[in-house]
Every structure is written in structure tokens, then in C-alpha cells.
């Protein structure tokens, strides 16, 4: 009897036990962030850490707000964004185009595969100085670096996508006498699209890295260059502010592509939209 009461609480007192997992995940994330920043702030203030080593979050935020008001920041932002976008678009065009061909012609893929693998294992960031030697200190070298870095994930995922077209789907079109072109537009492209988008999501992050690393090492423009200049003048607070700014830019690019997923492939398992 006592057991019964314990396992079945009487109706009317429906106070469900508190469970951490019932809190929405984003509130958890936010709480964690606040906790982290508060810890950081307390540490810096409590131990009186030197500003040159680690500025406090509030100081960084203030510095960021200040540079946001300057015209030169927006000019640098524009340059970095432009390099990233150009490099990324070039990578998408060549990566998807070549990937589609290699996916369709297995012989060619086998011939090129050792080279693709070889170029993938080369730490491409190490090639950056070379690109600067070849393409100069201007925007071109950064665009090339951004393109090269983004190219490989896009290529590899496109090949995979084109090769994973379902055999049953192919036979449906075969039985319907679809033309070569129809089978590309109706079957191969839509079926490879989720893979291509995954490649692009990986690629866009790499292109912004490419552009910034290029700016670190050569030239006089862009957010990467701005960061290096702050470092050289020991202005760690401003350096942090630029890093925050860069992160926001990177996040915007990535979020844009993830948003594309919902429009481009609403049918896919990776998209959980409630349709009514």
C-alpha cells in the first residue's frame, strides 16, 4: 500500500519533479555564457591581471563599441568580407563544377584521387606566404587563399553527392525515358544538393580563415591586418575587440548558409521545419 502511494502520487498534487533537461537548451547556453564572462570578469578584477595579458570582458565590449563607430573599421570589414565572398564563390563554382565531372567520370576521379588526397594533407595555410609572393600584397592573394581553402571540402562533398544518387531513383527516370538533361535537373542535382550544402558550410568557414590569415601575413588592409597592428602596439584590448568583430562576421556567413539549407532543401532530414 505504501509503495502504491509512493509510485502514484495522488491526483491534484501534480507538481512534477524539477528536471534540468526541461529547460530550453538556448537558455542553458546563455546561462553558461554569462557564467563564463562573469568568471572572467571576476578573475581579471580580483587578481588585478595586466591589461596587456588579459583585458576584462567589459573593457573589450567597450573597446568594440568604440571601434564600431569608426569608419576605418567598416572599411576593413568590407575588405575582409569581400575577399571571403569572392574566394568562396570561386571555390563553389570550381568545386561544384569539377566535383560534378569527377563524380560522373569515375576513371578521371581515380586518376586525380592521389593528387586530391595529397593536396588535402598539405597544411594549406603553410602555402600562404607563397600565394603572397605570387599574387602580391593586395586583395588578389587573399581571395586566392580563401578560394583554395574552401575548395576542397566543396569538391569532396560534391563528388560524394553525385556518386550517391539512389539506384532505384535512377531506374524510375530510366523507365520514364528521361533525357540526359532531365535526369541531371530532376535527379542528380537535387539529390547531390544536401552534400553540396554541407561542403559549402564547411567551406565558408575556411574561406574567412584564409582571408584573415592572408591579411595577417601581408598587406595593409582588412580585419586580419587590423588585428596584427593592435598586437604590434600591445593594445590587447583592441585586439580582442577585432577578434570579436571577426567572429561575428564569420558567424553571419555561416548562419546565412545554414539558413539557405531551409530554403534549398526543406525536404531533407537535416531540416526540421514544422509545416502546417
Amino acid at each position: 500500500m505504501a509503495d502504491d502511494v509512493a509510485t502514484h502520487p495522488p491526483v491534484g498534487r501534480q507538481r512534477r519533479p524539477f528536471r534540468l533537461t526541461r529547460i530550453p537548451a538556448w537558455i542553458g547556453s546563455l546561462a553558461l555564457l554569462v557564467l563564463f564572462l562573469a568568471g572572467w570578469e571576476t578573475y581579471v578584477r580580483g587578481f588585478d591581471v595586466s591589461k596587456f595579458l588579459l583585458p576584462s570582458p567589459s573593457e573589450i565590449l567597450q573597446a568594440w563599441m568604440e571601434i564600431l563607430g569608426t569608419a576605418s573599421l567598416w572599411q576593413h570589414t568590407w575588405i575582409t568580407a569581400w575577399e571571403t565572398i569572392l574566394g568562396f564563390v570561386i571555390a563553389v563554382i570550381i568545386g561544384v563544377g569539377l566535383g560534378a565531372v569527377l563524380g560522373k567520370v569515375p576513371w578521371l576521379e581515380q586518376v586525380l584521387n592521389p593528387f586530391i588526397v595529397a593536396t588535402q594533407v598539405v597544411p594549406k595555410v603553410a602555402l600562404v606566404p607563397l600565394f603572397i609572393v605570387w599574387f602580391g600584397f593586395g586583395m588578389t592573394s587573399k581571395v586566392v587563399i580563401a578560394a583554395v581553402l574552401a575548395f576542397f571540402p566543396i569538391l569532396v562533398n560534391t563528388i560524394l553527392g553525385v556518386k550517391s544518387v539512389d539506384r532505384g531513383h535512377r531506374e524510375v527516370l530510366q523507365s520514364l525515358n528521361a533525357s540526359r538533361w532531365q535526369s541531371i535537373t530532376q535527379l542528380e542535382f537535387p539529390s547531390a544538393l544536401p552534400y553540396i550544402l554541407t561542403g559549402m558550410e564547411m567551406g565558408v568557414v575556411l574561406s574567412i580563415i584564409g582571408a584573415v590569415v592572408g591579411e595577417y601575413l601581408g598587406g595593409s588592409q582588412g580585419l586580419g591586418n587590423l588585428a596584427v597592428r593592435q598586437m604590434n602596439s600591445y593594445n590587447t584590448t583592441a585586439l580582442f575587440a577585432v577578434i570579436i568583430h571577426l567572429s561575428v562576421l564569420g558567424f553571419l556567413f555561416y548562419a546565412t548558409l545554414v539558413g539557405c539549407r531551409r530554403f534549398a532543401i526543406p525536404w531533407h532530414e537535416s531540416v526540421q521545419v514544422n509545416r502546417k
Binding site: D166, G168, H169, E171, V172, L173, L176, N177, A178, Q182, Q186, L187, P190, S191, L193, I265, W267, H268
Partner: peptide, 22 residues
């Protein structure tokens, strides 16, 4: 076919009408 083989990127009506589209 033994499996339905519908195209997952087409709605049901677009799947049904695919031969007509072609």
C-alpha cells in the same frame, strides 16, 4: 517498383506528376 522510389525532394503531388513534367 518493389520499393516506392519516390523522390524525397518532391512533394507527393509533384512525385505523382513527375512523368507529366518530363
Amino acid at each position: 517498383f518493389q520499393e516506392a522510389n519516390l523522390f524525397p525532394w518532391l512533394t507527393i503531388e509533384d512525385n505523382i506528376a513527375l512523368p507529366l513534367k518530363l
